[in-house]
Amino acid sequence: MTEYILAKYNYWIYVVLMMIGLYAMMGKRNLVKKLIGMNIFQTSIILLFVSTGVKKGGATVPILMHAGHEHGAQLIQVSDYLNPLPHVLMLTAIVVSIATTGVALATLILIYKRYHTLEEDEILAIRRESRAYKTPRILNPTD
């Protein structure tokens, strides 16, 4: 049992992080808080990916030590180096997440300019009011 926990506890903590982030995205009213949650959510996924590349038992960072030597290539042991692929993917994912955050913040500023608040329920109230004002229903007896 202990072994099982030791083998899995990492994953569970990632899942907890994801849940925190997801909850903030869905349940929080403040838009900045939603974005913070989004960041947490995305980093936890990145963490999950990165951890798939981990190898126990002496593997080191995926930078070859004997590069340049002609015979160095033969000496490369797969178990000596961490799996590089998740790292590659996650470099992209980090950039994607920051890009999303950037666009989201830009819309956030637009929203603030328009409504002078960042609380979702207040904005919704304002919008409902303005929509009711902007589109008067013409009562048409034939409709």
Partner: peptide, 20 residues
């Protein structure tokens, strides 16, 4: 696979070729 297992599919299917 257990955390950090060097023989997990993720570490053994595609990636070894990258390293070598």
């Amino acid at each position: 696979p257990a955390w950090g297992d060097p023989d997990s599919p993720a570490n053994s299917h595609v990636s070894p070729r990258y390293i070598t």
